[in-house]
Structure formats: C-alpha cells, structure tokens
Design a protein around this nucleic acid. Structure first.
Lengths: 317, 317
DNA sequence: GATTTTCATAACTTTAAGTTATGTACTCGT
DNA sequence: ACGAGTACATAACTTAAAGTTATGAAAATC
C-alpha cells in the first residue's frame, strides 16, 4: 500500500503543531484542504490516525509513528530546497581546476584556499598540466576551467581565453645573493653562477633558455633541474644559483624575504597568464563563482605588482 | 522554494534504475507522466538535473544530490507502508495489560513472553492490580485489557468479561511435605502447621480465610505474609508451611517438582478468571491479537488441567 | 447553557498526473 | 556514414487531487 509522502508530511505537521488548523498554516495549505487530505489518508489506511471526536486532534499510536516518517520526508524536502538554493548561488557543488605547476603552487593554491574559507560547501578539485594537456581535458569535459600561460594567437578554436596577468619573467636568486647588491650587471658578473632549471617539458624551461640567450650566456651550467616550485625555492635559498621565474611568483614570496630578482631585463614571453575554457561550456554556478573569484584576485595582484614597480623605479631613479 | 517529495522520488528512481523508462516502471507510473513531472521540476528549479541531450539520462551533480534526498523520502514511504500493514495485522503497536499479581506472575507473564517471541514489534506493558483498580484504569482508557478473577454478577455495567478459567483454589505445600504423603487428612493433621498468607488486600487472602474456615480451622497461625508469588513459593519450598493458591499456578509449577497440593477439597470462590474490557473499547489490532492469544493459551491450560485431574482420579480410584 | 474554537463538508475551480498515440533525437552496429 | 533500435518528449484527452470560500457540526471552555 503506497502512501503519498505529502500525506505523511501532513500528519507530521498536525502532530507537531498541536492541531489541524495550525498544521495547515505551517504547511501553507488551507484548513479544509488538509482536513480532506487527512480524511482521504485515514480512509485508505482503514484506521484513524487521530482519536475520533477529540478537539484539538490527538494522534493515535499509529498516528505518532507515521508522523515520525513525515518528519523524515519534511527533512529531506528542506535539505533538497537548501541544496538547490545553495547550488544555484554557487555556494554548493564541485569545481575542477587545473593549471601549470609553477602558477598553481606559487599563486593559485593560496587563492583557492581563501575561496574555500567563504565557500565551505564548494568542493574544489585541483590538478596540474601544461597547455596541450589542459586543452584536451577541457575538450573531454573533464575540467571546468584551466589557468595557464598562452599566446593569444595560440588559443584554439572553440575556446575562450581571459587574460589575467601579462607575461613577465625575472631572474631570481636568494635575497642575499652577491649579484643582488650590484647596481648594474654585466655578462662577466653572471657567467660564474650555475642555474636551476624547471622541468624540461615546461614552458618555463623554454623561457629560461630564451632568457639566458638574450643576455649572451650561450653555455649555461645547470646545477639542479626538474623539481617542484617548493624544491626550486629551497635550493635557491641555500645556494648562489640563479633561475627564471614568473615575476608574480617572486613578488608573492617577498614577504618571506627569501627571494629577489636581479635588476636585469630579460626577454619575456609573448604569453599571458589566462583562464581557459571551452566556448560553449555551461559552467556550474560554483565554477562561475570561482572563476570570477580567481580573475578578481589576479586583478588585485596585477595592481599591486604595478604599484610596486612604480615605487622601485622612483626610489631607484 | 518548496519541492514536491514525489518529484524527489522520481529523480531517485531515474538515477537508481539507470533511465527514465525503467524509473517510471519502478514507480508504477507511465513513462510520459514521469517525463513531464521531471520537466516540471527542472523548470521550477531552473537548472537541469540530467545532462541535456544524453540517452539514457545521466544525472548532473545536483541531480545526484537531489536523488539522495529522494531515497530518503522513498525509505520513509516504505517504512510508513510497512508500519501500517504490520499495525493493522497486530504485528506492531503497544498493548497495556494488567492483572492480579498471583496470576500475572504465576501464569500470564510466561504467556506474554511466548507471545513476544512471535510478535517482536508489539510492545507489551504489563502491570498489577486488583479488580476495583483495574476497572478504574479501564474506564480511564489507561489499559487495553485486564485479567482478573471476578464473579459474573460482579461485572460492572459497560464492561465485557470473557471467562477463561474456572475458579479453583488448592492448599499448596512443598513437594516433600509430610502431609503430602497422607492418603486422607483430618483437622488434627493440619492444625500443627503454619500458613503463608497473601497480601491482605488481595482476593486470595479472602480465599485463604474462607478455605481454612471451611475445613474447620478457626485460629490459623500465619508465619509469613504479604510477599510476591516468587517469595511465597520460596518460603513454601523451604518450610512445612501451607498456603492457598489457584490450582493453575500450582499446576504450572509441577514441572519444577517444588510444589504440590494437598488432597483436600476446600471451598472455592464463585469467581472465574477472565479477560475484562470496557464494552465499547475499540481495541488496537495488537491488543485484539494478544487477547486472543491469552484466551487461547488459557483454553489449552484448562484442557490440560482437566486431563490431569481425570488421570489423577483414575489412578487414585 | 451560551460562546468560542476546531474540524468537517459542500460546491466550485484549478492544478497535476493519468492514459494512448506519436514525434524527435540519441545511440549503436554495420 | 547510414539505418535500425532505443529512450525520451510532446499532444490531446481524461481523471483525480487539492485549491478556494462559505457554512455546518461538534467539542471544549467559561
């Protein structure tokens, strides 16, 4: 015998509110409507759920038991309604994000952590990848969005690319590096020092090769290679080696007083860091919200970097 | 935003059965009906619950989450349906029974325990009382039925009394009592022994007084009084005292070989043991079932007692 | 016994869900 | 790439349930 779950909710409301009239009000229904629905249920069941002839209605033992199930139905209703509301407003759901390791570790992870402080019910799945692989995963609908450096003319058809940071690399070293104290640097100054190289398949590795070539170093010595950003920073701070890093990463490490950049302009890539999605993607509200959050945080970072650069040029001039 | 719990069940059925057509079948609904209900729900929510354009339907993340709530609604429905079915068949519910202590402890409690082996979901509340109090509690709708000895002409108006055992008391003693070995007993045989008396407000106390008076004992010595049946039996088996007990109680203790009755007819009350209810009581199915069970068990007990008495008379005669 | 409160019922309207029939689009095998 | 099969969407009509206002009946309270 199938029982309409709305009828169970009616029984629960009458029991919990202490009477049919108050129960109807709690349910947003009219009193006659509830009276008839209850009568219909009792007729189907074949036994009263409230003691006959008593006012206000007093539940029988079976009435109490069915009210308990009615509460469970009401709870499920309430949770479902809350789920929908929070989902639609981007306060619930999951988001799959991936990006190049140096940016994920150096910049974005902290942003995601900050985002989750204010969005506890959003489940962020983060992973790594370089542009080619990220494009494949977006095509396969395995990612909501990716964050990676890309040249504007390299964005494939069917994708959208929202630039969030201009490409700018610097030569990085430990804060107390001998070269860091010099006002001007020549090739002979740099030549004696070894280099730390990022993984060979990374765009940063190409950036490194291009950078050292642009300052005239043809045969640079690599003392460490292939590590994560954390290990690169660790070796850098314990040696006099040099490396090439995105300026944003070095900028955000400043507060630790461990890294600095050499006052030497190197060729920077034509690439910009940006948020990559498929053009026809209908993102979930949570993904949309996180994208906006990340874009907004990068806008603030870009402003702070620009301000810092103006300060340094003024003081240095 | 209120969500119809039946719609949650629909989402759950589609997800669990792997498709809309199978989900509709599981729910006992037609495929077009389910399709339209789902479309109505998605329209109200404002976002799809199943990925558009895919066959069979594949739930979105929100679809999965709402399906979980739909399972909870379905579970509550199933439990409610089972509750109703079991309640109506007397397999669930609670029953309030009371009776005179000597019968409750000596006969009925074991019956209730046997009943609950086959009716685990029936909750039996048992208590004690004598006729006057039991009548009051029945009137106050605080009991479903009572089991007590009563004379037919003493049944109040507005009550029903179903006799289940004729009144028959015996003088009881321990199995190895000296008097138990005698073929015939005289007043001088009995006079030296003390008596165990039941509580003074009990009908059995009146029976005791009437019984000893009927055999000519005018001034009987009481060595123990006021205890429960268990304590009376304990004292009886450890002494040569005598007492008056309903024969059914002694009969059911026979298997322990601790008690026996003296071969002496005493005046027995005009009372019969019976099931007492108010005439207009609409008992719950479980109470009805328990009443039938108790009446049935007493019928069997009466038959066994009668058979036993025939055996004893034949062997003895 | 009168008044108030609570629920039941009547009459009518609206909404949702039932059906069969059929159309559309997706999936799978060749 | 195309045809067949499968799964779901939609149309049209019917039925059932639930909405409303108005009012009656009975229980509870004073």
């Amino acid at each position: 015998m199938k029982i309409d779950p709305r009828h169970l909710e009616i029984v629960a409301a009458i029991v919990d509110e202490g009477g049919l009239t108050e129960g109807a009000q709690a349910l947003g229904k009219s009193q006659p409507s509830v009276s008839r629905s209850l009568a219909q249920l009792e007729s189907r069941i074949g036994t009263p759920l409230f003691h006959p002839g008593r006012r206000p209605l007093q539940p029988t033992e079976l009435g109490h038991a069915l009210a308990e199930q009615g509460r469970r139905v009401r709870d499920a209703d309430d949770i479902a309604a809350s789920l929908v509301t929070r989902y639609l407003s981007g306060h619930a759901g999951s988001v799959r994000v991936a990006g190049t390791p140096v940016f994920m570790d150096g910049v974005i992870t902290a942003m995601l952590a900050e985002f989750q402080k204010e969005a506890r019910d959003v489940h962020v799945h983060q992973s790594y990848g370089y542009a080619d692989e990220l494009i494949q995963r977006l095509n396969a609908d395995a990612l909501d969005f990716a964050v990676c450096p890309l040249r504007r003319d390299a964005v494939p058809d069917g994708f959208s690319f929202q630039a969030i940071l201009p490409g700018l690399n610097v030569i990085a070293c430990r804060a107390g590096h001998p070269l860091a104290r010099k006002r001007a640097l020549s090739l002979s100054d740099i030549a004696p020092y070894s280099w730390i190289a990022p993984p060979p398949d990374s765009p940063l590795f190409q950036d490194l090769k291009r950078a050292v070539s642009s300052i005239g170093v043809d045969d640079f010595r690599i003392s460490f290679s292939g590590g994560s950003l954390a290990s690169v920073i660790s070796v850098l701070t314990e040696s006099d080696s040099l490396t090439v890093l995105p300026y944003a990463v070095v900028f955000l490490q400043r507060h630790k007083n461990t890294l600095t950049e050499l006052p030497l302009k190197i060729s920077h890539p034509e690439r910009e860091l940006g948020i990559l999605t498929t053009s026809d993607a209908t993102n979930t509200p949570a993904a949309t919200r996180l994208k906006s959050f990340v874009a907004n945080r990068f806008q603030g970072l870009a402003s702070r970097i620009l301000q810092h650069q103006r300060n340094v040029t003024w003081r240095g001039g």
